[in-house]
Write a protein that binds this DNA or RNA. Structure first.
Length: 214
DNA sequence: TAGTGGCT
DNA sequence: TAAG
């Protein structure tokens, strides 16, 4: 895979763990199509602020597409095939989403990634996501693929224990983070967003997180 | 298992 | 900023 080494040499791939990396600008060419597809998804399944089991309303607004969607409520976290807010199935995963997720995973060394869930997070200035693990999926063989659009963010990438000090990874429009294997359950989060409006997307950041949930 | 991507 |  000479392309992989070339990409590392050119700084387009940054390792942040044995099986975790940032693909700089990997989604840039598709960014407009991805953003347009988010608008379509949100028309059918509007962004909403979920309430955690502890009773706190999350600052980040969320929606989903694909066969399964991640949800939180007072009863816990889980994946559901039906959007509890609309009573309808989540919108289908747009082909440009699935293709990007598969090629990004392959570029990071995870061949054959076929996500059945895409959680879409909308960050506005001041919003954050505190340190957590993605552990509601059925098995952890598949990686997580995370796509950044819009405003800059600081991604926190920690260890397998919540108490492990996380690395701070700056993320920009078009960057893609992939983690799996021994890094699959690492704690991660996002620092409160600075208001530095993006030329295309304005004062927001959209994050697409692809998972194989079932 | 409980409890939980937030809070103090 | 760390920890529960």
């Amino acid at each position: 895979m000479p392309d992989l080494f070339a990409a590392i040499d050119e700084g387009r791939i940054e390792a942040i763990g044995p099986r975790a990396c940032v693909l700089r600008g990997f989604a840039l060419a598709q960014a407009d199509a991805l953003a347009a597809a988010v608008v379509d998804v949100a028309r059918a399944a509007p962004f909403r602020h979920l309430v955690t089991p502890g009773g706190y309303t999350m600052s980040v607004a969320m929606t989903n597409c694909g066969a399964l969607g991640w949800i939180a409520d007072r009863r816990g976290y889980r994946y559901a095939a039906v959007d509890p807010q609309t009573g309808r199935p989540w919108p289908a995963m747009p082909p440009v989403f699935a293709h990007l997720a598969g090629t990004a995973a392959a570029a990071a060394g995870f061949a054959g990634f076929a996500p059945d869930a895409c959680l879409i997070n909308r960050y506005q200035p001041g919003t954050r996501l505190s340190l957590h693990q993605d552990r509601d999926e059925r098995d952890y063989a598949a990686p997580i693929v995370s796509v950044s659009l819009g405003m800059d963010a600081v991604f926190l990438f920690g260890g397998l224990a919540r108490s492990d000090t996380p690395a701070k990874v700056p993320l920009r429009h078009g960057d893609v983070v992939v983690w799996g294997g021994e890094d699959r359950l690492r704690f991660h989060g996002v620092l409160p967003l600075r208001d530095d409006p993006h030329p295309q997307l304005g004062s927001q950041r959209i994050n697409l997180t692809f998972r194989k949930a079932a």
